[in-house]
Simulated scan of single mutants.
Amino acid sequence: MTTRQLENVNEILRKHNKRKSALIAILQEVQKEYRYLPEDILKYIAAQMEITPAKVYSVATFYENFSLEPKGRYIIRVCDGTACHVRKSIPILNALRDNLHLSDKKHTTDDLMFTVETVSCLGACGLAPVITINDKVYAKMTPDAVTEILNTLKEEALHEVAQ
């Protein structure tokens, strides 16, 4: 763990007074900061809160929103609920995977720029097929439209690096 990470985690722990009842909130803040829950940070949290690493891991693995694997800067969720599936969400998923060189086993690009996940429902059936990118909803998607969005995001990222 870097000095910067240590300072960040200590600040989160201080904010919650290391209360055992705040474990979920602490993990949420850590994940927001790092886009996943690094193993060394989980062990550190357990030691600082005087709880077992097993307890921290059980909470981190119980809730679906927590991830023990690094996620990309852009988290793309493809809805595959009934309405989206019938309106061809799978070709959209395939276009994303092809464009980003991902598969059903590999969800995150090597540069940690993109993570692609499927979800059972995004609750926007009338807009099907739907994806979200960092929780922003994109309606009535097509493989071509999703490729355009990816190209725009990649371009924006390149501009940010150049500045």
Rank of each mutant, 00 (worst) to 15 (best):
Q5I: 08
L6F: 14
L6D: 14
E7N: 11
N8Y: 14
E11V: 09
I12H: 05
K15A: 10
K18A: 09
R19M: 09
K20S: 10
L23D: 03
I26W: 04
E33Y: 03
P38I: 07
K43C: 10
I45M: 11
Q48N: 13
M49E: 06
M49A: 10
E50G: 03
P53N: 10
S58F: 07
T61E: 08
Y63L: 12
N65T: 05
F66T: 00
F66N: 02
L68M: 04
Y74V: 01
I75K: 14
R77Q: 15
V78A: 15
A83V: 02
C84N: 09
K88Q: 05
K88T: 01
I92A: 07
L93H: 02
A95W: 07
H101C: 08
H101R: 11
L102P: 00
L102T: 03
S103E: 10
D104A: 11
D104C: 07
K105M: 09
K105D: 03
K105G: 10
T109P: 05
D111C: 05
L112F: 10
E117S: 05
E117Y: 12
T118K: 13
V119F: 15
V119H: 11
C121H: 06
L127A: 09
V130I: 11
T132K: 12
I133P: 02
N134I: 00
N134C: 00
D135Q: 13
M141V: 04
P143L: 04
E148P: 01
I149Q: 04
H159C: 03
Q163Y: 03
